[in-house]
């Protein structure tokens, strides 16, 4: 999918994971900061309650959305979320989350997911911006800060004709400016806290910059996490998921974390 030129700033939302409260809070916050366009980089469902509640928010606010691995799986009714876990415990919780989301997503919304593009491109401040879910080459590729070398990023920029690449999927935000001026950023996620012991989540603003043309700003978002936890309990979702929302520490799906990122967490 291609768009035209876009003026700064724009708001970028990573995985929502059915956290409709955080999505509403992020859109409101981005508006107050002057954001003129909104993008979602995929993974609308998972983890949280009532997956259908996210869709009207995205439509009513004209959030241009691309397809994450979760969306692809839900749309096609696949057996799993394509996160590639091998640890039995991680697979157990991933299965619960996926089956719940699959059952609770309406046919109409599954059709909507099926029509989403795999990437979104636009030009901003004369820079070619590429939005993707995991990486430009692979929807479910994890690009962690501590396992993504500069040389590998350069290959991605070269092979995918972009000056700025923005992704999500890992759940942890980070950014890197390469020596040639290219900018990569993981925009984080709205769906769950960042494994840092706080309950806030976050989104990213992309804005023009005199020095580099474009820069990103990570914006923390406080939202009604207690209400989300109540809804998760009422839906019978695992206590481990609720603990993450209430404590800010990840309790499941830790297998894929590299050692530096894992060390910063509690579990």
């Amino acid at each position: 999918m291609s768009g035209g030129s876009t003026e700064a700033p724009v708001a970028l939302f990573g995985g929502i994971y059915s956290n409709h409260w955080a999505l509403r809070a992020a859109i409101t916050d981005a508006r107050t900061r002057g954001a003129k366009a909104f993008y979602c980089l995929g993974d609308l469902g998972a983890f949280g309650p009532h997956p259908d509640l996210v869709f009207p928010i995205l439509r009513e606010n004209n959030v241009q959305t691309l397809s994450g691995n979760y969306d692809d799986s839900i749309a096609r009714g696949l057996d799993d979320c394509q996160c590639g876990y091998t640890d039995p415990r991680d697979n157990h919780f991933a299965r619960i989350s996926y089956q719940y989301t699959l059952q609770k997503t309406s046919p109409r919304n599954r059709e909507w997911l099926a029509a989403l593009p795999g990437e979104i491109r636009f030009v901003m401040a004369e820079k070619r911006v590429l939005l993707c879910h995991g990486s430009p080459r692979q929807r479910n590729e994890f690009l962690w800060e501590s396992t993504t070398p500069d040389a590998f990023l350069l290959k991605l920029f070269r092979n995918h004709d972009a000056d700025v690449i923005l992704a999500t999927h890992t759940g942890l935000k980070w950014r890197r400016r390469l020596s040639g001026g290219q900018l990569f950023a993981n925009v984080g996620v709205l769906g769950r806290p960042e494994n840092d012991g706080t309950t806030q989540v976050g989104y990213t603003l992309l804005r023009s910059s005199d020095e580099h043309g474009l820069e990103v700003e990570f914006v923390p978002v406080a939202y009604d996490h207690e209400q989300l936890a109540r809804e998760m309990r009422a839906e019978g979702l695992p206590a481990e998921f609720i603990e993450t929302i209430e404590s800010g520490w990840w309790t499941t799906c830790l297998e894929v974390l590299p050692s530096k990122e894992r060390s910063r967490g509690k579990w």
Partner: peptide
């Protein structure tokens, strides 16, 4: 380290 494939991985 990550045992499962990232299906469709390409350049």
């Amino acid at each position: 380290n990550t045992g499962a494939a990232l299906s469709g991985r390409d350049c």
